[in-house]
Amino acid sequence: MSYYEPLVYLVPPEEEGFILKTVLQKRLMVSRKLLSRIKLTEQGITVNGERQYINIKVKAGDRVEIRMEEEQSEDILPQELPLHILHEDEHLLILAKDAGIIVHPTHGHYVNTIANGVVFHWQQAGITCRFRPVHRLDQETSGVLAIAKTPYVHQQISEQMIQHLVKKEYLAFVWGTVASPSGTINEPIDRDPEQPHVRIVRPDGYAAVTHYEVVKQFEKAALVRIWLETGRTHQIRVHMRHLGHPLLGDKMYLLEQYEEEAAELEATERLHRQALHAFKLGFVHPGTREWTEFNAPLPADLSDLEQWLADKR
């Protein structure tokens, strides 16, 4: 049986006499679900090299180690695809995702996804990991994508997301003149009962909070920086439309008042998706326990769009 590199914790003097389970859950932040899984693994939890039950008391200086079995995504076909790797270590793979590519295979779409490319990349590097994206980006959204290499890393970042500790920032090009230089949209979102694949602002929806700041105002559009407190489906697209400023290239949420401008942009054939880019992702790195941020530069199509808008002044 093969294992990932163990997680190691040295018990400090002030934790002398703590129950091992407390150390695992309160210091290493192992979830109850993951802890149950690790307990079933041979040599999953050891103290000073010896397998132990989690109800024992630890001593100062004890070396606590957690081992998880190596896994791989046997249901994902390895496929050589271009990957823009921003960072990789034994815990994480950070990519700059292109627009137009799906993150994970879906029914009827089993190849040409980020997952296929990552599995091939790991196979070539001799790395045994299961494909575990810690968050998702829509097919047409570009930007930073984080992929966990172990269940522990995935759980750690997921918990930070639940507690709203992960920083996710976007750049979006929106139609119109944005009256306020910055603001917050706090409006619930849910499905449109007449079009279930579309989301709308509705009083009985799920809580959704979006913050924005205008970076550049052009003649008929603006570049805005956006950061989220919640992660509802299509949240940025729905909220910006509700504000009266739908995203450029977004046909689903376009307002009638911008149809002429949208048609002019479409005629240039320079933009084939909604103008949304996830440019920054920040969180406490599960391996180093330090705050870490990753940035993806504006892709070529949006840089070209920015120049086109600037030239139209």
Rank of each mutant, 00 (worst) to 15 (best):
E74L: 13
H109R: 14
E88M: 05
N112R: 12
H109Q: 13
N112L: 11
L83E: 01
H107I: 06
Q123H: 14
I114A: 09
H87D: 05
L81D: 05
E70R: 14
G126Q: 04
T106S: 15
T150G: 05
Q155R: 00
N116K: 10
I114W: 12
D98T: 07
V119D: 10
E80M: 07
Q72N: 05
L86Q: 06
I94K: 04
Y110D: 14
I85W: 07
I66V: 08
P133L: 10
E90R: 13
D98C: 01
H154L: 14
D62H: 06
V144I: 07
D89C: 03
E74Q: 08
L93V: 11
P133S: 11
D62I: 02
L77E: 15
V103F: 06
Y110F: 15
R63F: 00
Y152D: 01
R136I: 06
N112H: 15
L93E: 08
L83G: 00
L86K: 04
I66Q: 01
H91E: 12
R132A: 08
I76E: 09
I85E: 09
I85G: 09
L95R: 02
L93M: 09
H91L: 02
H135T: 00
L93P: 02
A146I: 14
L93T: 10
V64I: 15
I66E: 01
D75M: 02
R132D: 04
P105M: 10
P78E: 07
E90Y: 02
H109F: 11
T128A: 10
H104Q: 13
C129K: 01
T128P: 00
L81H: 05
I147G: 04
H154E: 14
I94S: 01
H87A: 09
Y152Q: 01
T141G: 04
G61C: 04
Y110N: 14
S73C: 02
P133W: 10
Y152P: 01
I147Q: 06
Q72P: 00
R136N: 09
Q123I: 00
I85Y: 07
Q72C: 07
P133T: 09
V64S: 03
Q156Y: 14
L77H: 13
H84S: 14
L95G: 03
A99Y: 01
E69S: 09
H87C: 04
M68E: 14
I76L: 07
V119L: 11
Q156A: 14
R130W: 03
H84D: 15
V134D: 03
V118N: 12
I127G: 00
H121P: 01
D89P: 00
Q123E: 14
K97F: 06
I102Y: 04
R136Y: 07
Q155V: 00
H107K: 15
Y110C: 09
R130E: 12
E88Q: 15
V118R: 13
R130A: 14
L77Q: 14
R132F: 08
K149I: 03
E70C: 10
V119T: 11
P105H: 10
V144H: 05
L81F: 06
L137W: 09
L77Y: 13
R130H: 10
E80T: 03
H104Y: 15
S142W: 05
A146R: 02
H91R: 07
I114S: 09
Y152K: 02
H84V: 07
A115Q: 06
H154D: 10
F131C: 07
V119W: 10
R136K: 09
A115K: 08
C129P: 00
R67K: 13
Q72A: 07
E65I: 04
G61W: 08
A96E: 15
